[in-house]
Amino acid sequence: MAMNGTITTWFKDKGFGFIKDENGDNRYFHVIKVANPDLIKKDAAVTFEPTTNNKGLSAYAVKVVPL
Rank of each mutant, 00 (worst) to 15 (best):
Met1Cys: 11
Met1Trp: 09
Met1Gln: 12
Met3Glu: 03
Met3Pro: 03
Met3Tyr: 07
Met3Asp: 02
Asn4Trp: 13
Asn4Gln: 12
Gly5Phe: 02
Gly5Gln: 00
Gly5Val: 01
Thr6Val: 14
Thr6Ala: 06
Thr6Leu: 08
Thr6Gln: 08
Thr6Pro: 00
Thr6Asn: 07
Ile7Asp: 00
Ile7His: 00
Ile7Thr: 00
Ile7Pro: 00
Ile7Gly: 01
Ile7Ala: 00
Thr8Asp: 06
Thr8Ser: 10
Thr8Asn: 06
Thr8Gly: 05
Thr9Tyr: 14
Thr9Asp: 09
Thr9Ile: 14
Trp10Gly: 00
Trp10Cys: 03
Trp10Ile: 04
Phe11Ser: 05
Phe11Pro: 01
Phe11Thr: 03
Phe11Arg: 05
Phe11Tyr: 13
Lys12Met: 07
Lys12Trp: 08
Lys12Val: 09
Asp13His: 12
Asp13Glu: 12
Lys14Phe: 11
Lys14Ala: 09
Lys14Arg: 13
Gly15Lys: 07
Gly15Arg: 07
Gly15Val: 03
Gly15Trp: 05
Gly15Asp: 05
Phe16Asn: 02
Phe16Ser: 03
Phe16Gln: 02
Gly17Glu: 00
Gly17Asp: 00
Gly17Ala: 01
Gly17Ser: 01
Phe18His: 04
Phe18Glu: 03
Phe18Met: 06
Phe18Ala: 03
Ile19Thr: 01
Ile19Tyr: 01
Asp21Ala: 04
Glu22Thr: 09
Glu22Gln: 12
Asn23Arg: 10
Asn23Ser: 06
Asn23Lys: 11
Gly24Ala: 04
Gly24Gln: 05
Gly24Arg: 04
Asp25Leu: 08
Asp25Asn: 09
Asn26Phe: 15
Asn26Pro: 05
Asn26Leu: 14
Arg27Cys: 02
Arg27Trp: 10
Arg27Glu: 00
Tyr28Pro: 02
Tyr28Lys: 03
Tyr28Asp: 01
Phe29Gln: 00
Phe29Thr: 01
Phe29Ser: 01
Val31Arg: 13
Val31Thr: 07
Ile32Ala: 15
Ile32Cys: 14
Lys33Thr: 15
Lys33Tyr: 15
Lys33Phe: 15
Val34Asp: 04
Val34Tyr: 03
Val34Cys: 10
Ala35Phe: 13
Ala35Lys: 14
Asn36Leu: 04
Pro37Asn: 04
Pro37Val: 06
Pro37Trp: 05
Asp38Arg: 10
Leu39His: 10
Leu39Glu: 12
Ile40Gly: 01
Ile40Asn: 00
Ile40Asp: 00
Ile40His: 02
Ile40Lys: 00
Lys41Asp: 06
Lys42Leu: 12
Lys42Glu: 08
Asp43Ala: 09
Asp43Ser: 10
Asp43Ile: 03
Ala44Glu: 05
Ala44Val: 08
Ala44Pro: 01
Ala45Ile: 11
Ala45His: 14
Ala45Asp: 08
Ala45Pro: 10
Val46Ile: 05
Val46Tyr: 02
Val46Gln: 00
Thr47Lys: 08
Thr47Gln: 10
Phe48Lys: 00
Phe48Leu: 03
Phe48Ser: 01
Glu49Gln: 15
Glu49Asn: 14
Pro50Lys: 04
Pro50Cys: 04
Pro50Leu: 04
Thr51Val: 14
Thr51Gly: 12
Thr51Asn: 09
Thr51Asp: 10
Thr52Gln: 14
Thr52Pro: 04
Asn53Pro: 04
Asn53Gln: 07
Asn54Gln: 13
Asn54Gly: 13
Asn54Tyr: 11
Lys55Met: 12
Leu57Trp: 03
Ser58Asp: 04
Ser58Lys: 04
Ser58Ile: 08
Ser58Tyr: 08
Ala59Phe: 02
Ala59Glu: 01
Tyr60Cys: 13
Ala61Phe: 09
Ala61Asn: 14
Ala61Trp: 10
Val62Trp: 02
Val62Leu: 04
Lys63Asn: 10
Lys63Glu: 10
Lys63Met: 13
Lys63Ile: 13
Lys63Gly: 03
Val64Trp: 02
Val64Gly: 02
Val64Glu: 02
Val64Cys: 05
Val64Arg: 01
Val64Leu: 05
Val65His: 12
Val65Phe: 11
Val65Gly: 07
Pro66Lys: 11
Pro66Gly: 11
Leu67Ala: 14
Leu67Asn: 14
